[in-house]
């Protein structure tokens, strides 16, 4: 099974060069059955990463490009009158897929954002009075431009909280960029990617993640971290219990990806910035979302041995 994971990571790595840790984070997020938010500038490979994930995981895939005139019906689907049968037929929207790429989610109006975010939370949608379940597994990978860019509607804290992780890709290092420039078009490479997993394997991996062992010593460490965010004045507010659960769940997946059946502090430290940054706010920053560099401070202030 471990081979499968490593193979998956390597496969995605052929498309997204030099971003192994982000790929692992994205995978850990999906293994923890969480939704992923990728935030970065345009052209950094957000879409590439999500497409590659969909392909190698062998999931049915659709992409919704969010724009300011996108309506909820464009996401969920709508009923259309069929003149031949004289009935209304429901045409499912792109949301009825296993993996949804919600591209540039913060360009849409809050109304449309909510349509997606409700589906993420409930795993079902209600259209015209009928409740329709969504396929399983169901993942949403949303990408967004940084909030300070033009034409964006910032997601509120409550909706950011629906995403298990928020990751940033960042610029590639010079070697990877050189390879990128020399190599062939990534779209071609993407087209050649083969699925490395099927839905059953994925589901089994997810179950295994849940069984990764967490000792009392580690729980102590996690609780100390959470307590610090609640007490230290530099954080405007502390981490919620849901945030703590998310942190632990991601750490388990990370441990599994590292081929370990128990969590060590390094697992927590590896996923912590991606899991907690969008759930916290810096005291000094009244408008922003994200604790920024404070998570590094958090990690350097709380010792693994209490």
């Amino acid at each position: 099974m471990q081979d499968v994971i490593q193979h998956t990571i390597a496969q995605i790595g052929t498309v997204l060069l030099g971003k192994e840790s982000q790929i692992k984070l994205a995978l850990a997020c999906l293994l923890s059955r969480g939704h992923l938010l990728i935030e970065d500038l345009p052209g950094m490979g957000k879409t590439t990463l999500s497409q590659a994930l969909a392909r190698v995981l062998g999931l049915s895939y659709s992409r919704i490009q969010f724009t300011s005139d996108l309506l909820p019906a464009d996401i969920l689907g709508t009923s259309i009158f069929d003149q031949h049968s004289g009935e209304f037929n429901f045409i499912p929207g792109p949301i009825f897929n296993q993996l949804i790429l919600a591209d540039e989610i913060n360009r849409a109006t809050p109304k449309s954002q909510s349509a997606l975010l409700e589906a993420m939370e409930e795993q079902q949608v209600t259209i015209e009075g009928a409740t329709r379940p969504l396929p399983s597994p169901f993942f949403v990978i949303a990408t967004q431009n940084p909030n300070n860019q033009g034409g964006t509607f910032a997601l509120p804290e409550s909706q950011l909280d629906r995403f298990l992780m928020r990751i940033e890709l960042g610029y590639p290092d010079p070697a990877a960029e050189r390879q990128l420039l020399k190599g062939e078009d990534r779209r071609h490479v993407l087209g050649r990617l083969q699925p490395t997993l099927d839905a059953d394997q994925l589901s089994e991996l997810q179950n295994r993640c849940q069984q990764v062992k967490v000792s009392d010593a580690l729980l102590d460490y996690v609780q100390r971290l959470v307590l610090y965010t609640r007490q230290a004045p530099e954080f405007a507010y502390g981490l919620s219990p849901r945030g703590a659960l998310a942190l632990l769940s991601c750490a388990k997946s990370w441990a599994l990806i590292d081929d370990r059946l128990y969590v060590v502090p390094e697992d927590v430290q590896a996923v912590l910035p991606s899991v907690v940054e969008h759930r916290l706010r810096e005291t000094a920053d009244f408008s922003g979302h994200g604790a920024g560099g404070l998570t590094q401070r958090l990690l350097s202030k709380v010792d693994i041995i209490g």
Binding site: E266, K301, I304
Partner: peptide
């Protein structure tokens, strides 16, 4: 060992 440094690091 720095504060917060994990055993493997």
């Amino acid at each position: 060992r720095q504060t917060g440094e994990g055993p493997w690091s």
